[in-house]
């Protein structure tokens, strides 16, 4: 494997496990708590997130590199990114409704919901901050989406169990959910350092 490939795989693994957006960087907590009640919704949401993360990166990276940086407007990053991502998701939604109604129905309400999700914005900005190239940015976005998917699927399973349990009254509902999320997050901290050691970078 070429050095570039190794680097891309390392970025992917790192994004999924080590720098997991939900459980490690605490971005995108809102859908993580809101939509993780059952597996079906969690999957739909996660697929929409993967989709939008990749798409947003594919658009914002060129804008930052070829538009904002050359004209000394890099400080407008956040504003411009939000604007562009929102418009883009809207455009994609219109296009999907027309040409791929099946996918439109599958993504359903989640597509507009995550338009300006902080995890989506976080990925696009992290790509710039870490100085990734275009391919690396895309891989990172896809990996982050996958990490979100993983966290959502695991957590919807956990919540299924928690619902059957009978915690003490003060812990019922959201408190026990937050505690479970914290424990899951601690578990993910166990992945610390594996990418560096696995790929020797």
């Amino acid at each position: 494997m070429s050095e570039q490939m190794v680097k891309l795989v390392a970025i992917l693994m790192g994004a999924v496990l080590v720098n997991n957006y939900v459980l490690r960087q605490f971005l995108g907590i809102c859908p993580f708590l809101g939509v993780s009640k059952d597996l079906k919704n969690a999957t739909g949401m996660s697929i929409a997130v993967i989709f939008v993360m990749c798409l947003a990166t594919a658009v914002t990276w060129p804008i930052q590199t070829y538009l904002l940086v050359p004209s000394n407007l890099a400080y407008l990053q956040t504003v411009v990114f939000i604007l562009v991502i929102a418009a883009l998701v809207q455009l994609v939604e219109i296009a999907l409704k027309k040409y791929i109604p099946a996918l439109y129905r599958a993504l359903g309400v989640y597509l507009p919901l995550i338009t300006t999700n902080c995890a989506v914005l976080g990925v696009t900005i992290a790509n710039i901050d870490k100085g990734y190239g275009f391919a690396e940015s895309l891989v990172n976005a896809f990996g982050s989406g996958l990490g979100f998917f993983l966290a959502m699927v695991i957590f919807s399973g956990v919540r299924g169990r928690v619902e059957h349990a009978q915690p003490p009254k003060p812990f019922q509902g959201l408190p026990i959910t937050l505690i479970s999320a914290a424990i899951l997050s601690l578990a993910f901290f166990g992945f610390n350092g594996i990418v560096e050691n696995l790929f020797k970078i």
Partner: peptide, 26 residues
């Protein structure tokens, strides 16, 4: 310059969306 730049990007997005919603009207 910054205001104009963001306004221009916003305007481009707006035009794009308007055209798209007309062209791909369901």
């Amino acid at each position: 310059f910054a205001i104009l730049a963001v306004a221009a990007i916003g305007a481009i997005c707006a035009v794009m969306l308007t055209v798209a919603s007309k062209v791909m009207y369901v």
